[in-house]
Design a binder for these strands. Structure first.
Length: 446
RNA sequence: GUGGUUGUAGCUCAGUUGGUUAGAGCGCCUGAUUGUGGUUCAGGAGGUCGUCGGUUCGAGACCGAUCUUCCACCCCA
């Protein structure tokens, strides 16, 4: 049998793990600087927790876990006969793998509300699973790094998240554009254009504007049975770039005006301190997850062909599905795997990641091997990442090992070194070598 | 979910209309060099051609199923 991974999943080898930890650690330190604490939730949730939160499309992508034991016992003969897979899954499966970190978080908050001091700021770095067809930057198992605040509707937090995005991607050296919109503005546009009933159709179509152009969007809107008059109106509104003018145009829509107000407030917060990344208003930004109700964000890497590498928004009512009413939350998710691919493409991983071991001891014979093994201890004691080749093999072989493992220093120990106590330290990059005592070398390498 | 695409040595890939014993480069191992890697030279090991089944005197090649890869749509991180 030829081994291979299950669809849409990958192994992470040592170097890849080191690179991933670099991403996680970079983000973690920023998250905690802003006062967020980590939590973790199980990979498996009840299906009742997960279904109905992501829209029909999302529900279909949920991985369901078969019940233990005789899972056919509770399936009705009728459903089996009719091959009614939806009813059958309901009886055969009561759990599923988490689809994102936000919904399990909402469950967590509702369940633990008595222990939580609101506003609650948490971050969470864990894998999620989606039964999508895999593609580049698109996997069935991938990691999300979520930062969320619940229990406050202050727009200060929207601005804070923008700042975290800016700082996070700056630390990772990825140039980005942050796109900002507000679902209420989209609602307003739908109202003014008279298509409230087709809100989702409208947003899905205009979300593609930068991809398929105005003509394509017109076609898409027409296909979705939106009246020509409304289409004209929608494009008229979308062409307005300045907030005050859009405010005027949306005058008849209360919710639209609220959305504009919110955006203005967010920008006021953001502008209190200079920010490096481009933050742009984009009324066409829609985002698919239908639990968003206010501001929405999306981040694109500049100069790389890749879907969005981060996204999020405000959700006013997610916890009410779990019985906790009137709790507003806002959060963003960093897509770790896509960030990984972008860093790889831009060649922006720091080179230090590739050097895990700093020095390799090389022994010439059995006696010096034991001596080297004893010396190894002192390097580790001094917190220097050190290793010893497991046997006194040919020097060439040991050198090659150090070379292939990217180990920058080698110490050669043979009979004469043991006698004099002067060890041979070789710099693998320059090829230079000097004789020093153990203590001297340790001091040099620390 | 719809329509395509890919799979041959550890890696990247050749392999004519079906016809002897399946190739190359890189990597790996050994030696030139018994205490010096990343260069050079010589030699060597390594493949039930993704899997299962079918057609055929004969299949890496043709057909079917299945798994996997990548792509477009859909959606999204």
């Amino acid at each position: 049998m030829k081994p291979s991974n299950a669809k849409g999943t990958r192994d992470y080898s040592a170097l890849q793990v080191a690179k991933r930890y670099y991403i996680f650690d970079t983000l973690k330190s920023i998250f905690s600087k802003y006062g967020f604490c980590p939590i973790e939730t199980p990979a498996v949730e009840k299906l009742s927790t997960l279904t109905g939160k992501y829209g029909e499309e999302g529900d279909q992508l949920l991985f369901k876990v078969l019940n233990n034991g005789d899972f056919l016992k509770s399936v009705k003969d009728e459903d089996l006969q009719n091959r009614d897979y939806k009813k059958m899954t309901h009886d055969m499966s009561s759990r599923g793998l988490r689809y994102d970190l936000t919904v399990p978080f909402a469950r967590y908050v509702s369940q633990h509300q008595s222990e939580i001091q609101f506003p609650f700021k948490r971050y969470q770095i864990q894998p999620v699973w989606r039964g999508d067809r895999p593609q580049k930057g698109r996997y069935q198992e991938f990691y999300q790094c979520d930062v969320d605040v619940v229990g406050s509707d202050s727009l200060m937090y929207e601005a804070e998240l923008v700042r975290i995005l800016d700082e996070g991607f700056r630390a990772l050296q990825i140039p980005i554009v942050i796109k900002l919109n507000n679902r209420k503005v989209l609602n307003g546009i739908a109202e003014v254009a008279g298509v409230q009933d087709q809100f989702t159709d409208m947003t899905v179509a205009i979300d593609k504007l930068d991809k398929i152009g105005q003509e394509g969007v017109e076609k898409e809107l027409t296909k979705r049975n939106i009246a020509p008059d409304s289409i004209t109106k929608i494009f008229e509104l979308l062409s307005i770039k300045e907030l005050p003018k859009l405010k005027e145009a949306l005058g008849s829509s209360e919710v639209g005006l609220k959305g504009i107000d919110e955006l203005e407030t967010v920008f006021n917060y953001i502008n209190l301190q200079p920010i490096e990344s481009t933050v742009e208003l984009d009324y066409t930004l829609a985002r698919g997850l239908n639990y968003y109700t206010g501001c929405i964000f999306e981040v694109k890497a500049v100069g790389v062909e890749m879907g969005s590498i981060s996204g999020g928004g405000r959700y006013d009512d997610l916890t009410s599905a779990f019985g906790l009413k009137n709790i507003s939350g806002v959060g963003i998710s960093f897509g770790a795997d896509r960030i990984f691919d972008v860093l790889e493409e831009l060649n922006k991983f720091p080179s230090r990641i590739e050097k895990s071991t700093k020095v390799l001891l090389i022994a010439m014979d059995d006696k010096s091997h034991l001596f080297a093994y004893k010396s190894l201890h002192y390097f580790r004691e001094a917190n220097i990442s050190a290793d010893l080749y497991p046997e006194p093999a040919k020097m060439k072989k040991q050198m090659k090992y150090a070379n292939n493992k990217n180990i920058p220093f080698v110490i050669i120990i043979g009979e004469s070194e043991m006698e004099t106590g002067m060890l041979m330290l070789k710099n693998m990059e320059t090829g230079m070598q000097v004789q020093s005592t153990l203590g001297e070398i340790i001091r040099k390498l620390s």
